[in-house]
Computed example of a mutant assay.
Amino acid sequence: MNRKSNVVRQRAERDLARLPEASLLALPRPRVVISVSNLSKTYASGFHALKDINLEIRRGEIFALLGPNGAGKTTLISIICGIINPGVGTVLADGHDIVTEYRAARFKIGLVPQELTTDAFETVWDTVSFSRRLFGRRANPGYIEKVLKDLSLWDKKDSKLITLSGGMKRRVLIAKALSHEPEILFLDEPTAGVDVDLRREMWQLVRALRASGVTIVLTTHYIEEAEEMADRVGVINQGELILVEDKAELMHKLGRKRLILHLEGSLECIPSALAAHALELAAGGTELVYTYDPHDEQTDITALLGDLYKADIRFKDLRTKQSSLEEIFVSLLREERR
């Protein structure tokens, strides 16, 4: 970088650093809090990590970004958060361009990364307080105390990070991300490697943050996590965003139902008289499973029950089960491979 460019950059950073917190918070609040337009990213090796991504994330929602390993989830988040330089395209964070208005955009964002990148010999209190100061926030011990208590870290505030368990360290990462009171929080695999109790505690925290107005963007390999919490779901595969949909609408449109019949006896195979119903045997031959689309005008359940009676196959109980988000996700990826 030449001397003139360096002077211009330093002057711009100094001016942005002087911008009062209140003026940043008082800027217009569009309904769309993250806007990604025609974003592509190609590395020097020629690998196309992202291909023409267009995405809008709404203020105050929980948005789950799903995809297999290497699909581009972390690359997309890293670009929005300013960790990786974008290739082609535009990204706005609460109306601020992440390149030309970097400081204003980054001020709005908190990031909980996958990796535990913290100073092992700092105390919990010091590392969270330092993260707040990095964003130019004034000291607020009361707020830091609240964050640590919300994350069950208060009794560890004077402990060095090296002494903490993996689950506790992940809580510290969340505390650091929340330290400057961001309006957008990115959680990149936040519950990887944590126990079930901590995972549910984190779900409660995420809901509380959303209730307070924070927009949450979540990536996870635990699909039940997205099913439990997300308002909308995006699916990315091989660098392409293949679907963005309200979770409830997605499950309504693509979800299927299974009728599970618990038989009085067991079957070794499905009788030819029932072949027209595309049944499956399960539970060692003691269950018959019929999969159908609940939105069809004719589900053929009545005909199935009649044919069971004619074939002298009796059942002692029955239940229905709705497709899970995980099953829908797997079927989408399977369709993409075809």
Rank of each mutant, 00 (worst) to 15 (best):
E227Q: 00
I144M: 13
L187E: 11
N54H: 08
N6V: 13
R171W: 07
T320D: 15
E224L: 01
A275Q: 11
L333G: 11
D246L: 07
E201P: 08
D126L: 02
K176Q: 03
C81M: 05
L27V: 13
D155R: 14
H48R: 14
I236W: 09
R106S: 07
L111V: 15
T291H: 07
G136I: 02
R29L: 06
T42D: 00
D15V: 11
R106T: 05
R171P: 15
D52M: 12
L55W: 00
K157C: 11
I301C: 10
V217A: 01
I80F: 06
V214H: 06
A275M: 10
S37G: 02
L250P: 02
V36A: 11
L25E: 12
S331I: 09
E335C: 02
G166A: 05
G89N: 06
L151H: 12
V99G: 07
F130C: 06
K316Y: 02
D119G: 05
E61N: 04
A26C: 15
V147K: 03
H180I: 14
E61I: 09
S5G: 09
E335Y: 11
E268G: 11
L92R: 11
A248Q: 02
A177S: 14
V289C: 06
L151E: 00
S5D: 06
D307F: 09
V194S: 12
S152K: 14
I260R: 07
L274D: 09
Y143I: 05
R11L: 12
R31Q: 15
L254Y: 15
D195Y: 07
N38V: 03
N38A: 15
E101G: 00
E280S: 07
V33C: 03
V112I: 14
A26F: 14
E183W: 14
L164W: 03
E61G: 11
A177L: 08
W154M: 08
S131M: 10
T219N: 06
E183Y: 05
A44L: 04
I301K: 08
E183S: 13
Y222H: 00
S40A: 13
K41N: 09
L325V: 07
V172D: 02
F47L: 11
E336T: 08
S159W: 05
R171M: 10
R18I: 02
D155K: 12
T127N: 03
D307G: 08
K73N: 10
P113L: 03
A139F: 10
I34R: 00
K253Y: 03
L267W: 06
A275F: 05
I236C: 10
P271H: 04
Y309K: 12
K176H: 04
E201L: 13
S323Q: 15
I260W: 09
N85A: 12
W154A: 06
N38I: 05
P68S: 01
